[in-house]
Simulated scan of single mutants.
Amino acid sequence: MRYAQGGGLTPAGQAKRERLRLAAAGRFKNGERTAAIARELRVTERSVRRWRRAWEAGGGEALLSVGPVSAERLSAEQFARLEREPARGPPAHGWSEDSQGWTLKRIKLLIGRMFHVGCTVQGVWKLMRRHGWSAQVPVRRALERDEEQIEVWKGGVAADKSTALDLGAAVCFEDGTGQGMRPPKGRTGARRGQRPTVRVRGSSRGRVSLAGVRCCRPGHRPRMFFRPHVHHGRHREPKTFTWREYRDLIVDTHQQLGTPLVWVWDNLNVHLQQEWFDFAAGHQDWLRIFHLPSYAPELNPVEHLWSLLKRHLADFAAADLAHLTRAIKRKLKKIQYRPHLIEGCLAGTGLIIEPPTDTTSST
Rank of each mutant, 00 (worst) to 15 (best):
I353R: 03
Q179R: 11
G344W: 01
V213L: 15
R288W: 03
R234I: 06
G155C: 14
G123N: 06
C172D: 13
A71R: 07
F79L: 13
K239L: 13
R141H: 14
A23Y: 02
L308I: 05
M1N: 03
G344P: 02
P183F: 03
E18Y: 06
R81L: 05
S134Q: 11
V198N: 05
A35Y: 11
H235S: 15
N267G: 10
G212V: 14
R81P: 04
A314Y: 09
S162H: 06
S65M: 01
K239E: 14
R311K: 12
I353M: 04
R130E: 01
P356L: 05
Y295T: 14
A281Q: 14
H232S: 09
H271Q: 01
L63F: 00
A38G: 11
R52C: 05
L309G: 00
V124L: 04
R81Y: 04
G58M: 11
K16Y: 00
W286N: 15
R129L: 06
P238G: 12
W51V: 00
S204N: 08
L341Y: 02
E40F: 05
V121F: 07
R21F: 00
R195M: 03
S70P: 05
R39N: 07
G258Q: 04
A25M: 08
G123Y: 03
S362W: 13
G189N: 07
G7E: 07
K185P: 05
S47W: 15
D285M: 12
F225P: 01
A159E: 13
S203N: 08
A135T: 14
T34Q: 10
V270R: 01
T359P: 11
F79N: 13
W263N: 07
R195L: 11
R130S: 02
G348Y: 06
I111S: 04
R221S: 10
R182G: 08
L309I: 07
R207E: 08
R311G: 14
G176H: 02
Q255E: 12
E298R: 09
